[in-house]
Design a protein around this nucleic acid. Structure first.
Length: 265
DNA sequence: ATGACCGATTGCATCGGA
């Protein structure tokens, strides 16, 4: 089973790029982020034609997550517990039937959090990011008690270490690289979730995002912020990981590229 | 010679992104 994560930066702007990539890569499950559209305007037919079932949690203009799956959904959950007033569409969790039992997959669009400061204290945006990460930790803790293959896929907006960016000094003080961000990310991984990339590859300076500005892609000034966090029951069956960075060099690309984990599940 | 950001909105500029 191949499971991918891809922040598309508007699904309507990517009606060519995403189906072309799907036709080549043929992943079984794809977690999409930053749809930037309401459910009614999501081009489901493009994906149904390619054999995918679609689970959708859209939002007008911002955010929005989806899961495409060749296997039918046995369960779909659209909310990250912990704040009933949170209206932002950033979480979608599904369960499909693997070879040896249920496989649980989430599509995550973790808040950016910039700017970090508002005067002398953390901004509302950065506080929302840290709160959201604490909620994700609490939910992950619940899901891990199921002792299932669990893969939390998404745009975490977290640069895990200085090895995951061209020049870390340029990111000091950024919400993606703050000590508090790193601590909140470790609080999640320390529960027993392993980054698929770090488990089977781990080379430094491999990126999943290059900004549109300043020739970031040709200069290879990227960051690695899209991650597949896996329970032990998933990591046991992880065979390989790849980052399809060639997608970034095509016409009208997203600023992110897909990351794919190959699991024997 | 110079790698000039992109997408959504009700807009002809502003916001959010990372």
């Amino acid at each position: 089973m191949e499971i991918a994560s891809f922040n598309v930066n508007s699904i309507r702007a990517r009606t060519h790029a995403v189906p072309v990539w799907l036709s080549e890569a043929k992943p079984d499950i794809v977690c999409l982020q930053e749809l930037k559209t309401m459910d009614a305007d999501f081009p489901s037919e493009l994906f149904e034609e390619l054999g995918y079932n679609v689970a959708l949690h859209g939002q007008k203009s911002y955010n929005g997550v989806a899961v495409l799956s060749k296997l039918p959904f046995e369960e779909v959950n659209m909310r990250l517990p912990g704040d009933d007033n949170d209206e932002q569409a950033r979480y979608l969790e599904v369960v499909v039937a693997g070879k040896n039992g249920p496989v649980r997959v989430s599509s995550i669009y973790l808040p950016n959090g910039n700017p970090v400061m508002d005067g002398d204290s953390f901004s509302a945006k950065y506080t929302y990011k840290l709160d959201w990460m604490a909620r994700l930790k609490a939910h992950a803790q619940t899901l891990l008690t199921y002792e299932e293959p669990l893969i939390l896929c998404g745009d975490y907006n977290v640069i895990p270490s200085a090895d995951d960016v061209h020049d870390a000094s340029l990111w000091a003080g950024d919400a993606l690289f703050m000590p508090q961000t790193h601590a909140a990310f470790r609080a999640i991984t320390n529960l027993g979730l392993t980054s698929a990339y770090e488990q089977v590859d781990g080379r430094p300076h491999q990126y999943t995002y290059w900004g549109y500005q300043g020739g970031a892609r040709p200069k290879n000034h990227g960051i690695r912020i899209d991650h597949l966090l896996c329970s032990a029951q998933a990591i046991d069956h992880l065979k390989s990981v790849r980052i399809d960075e060639h997608v970034r060099d095509r016409e009208k690309p997203s600023d992110h590229v897909p990351i794919i984990g190959v699991f024997d599940l």
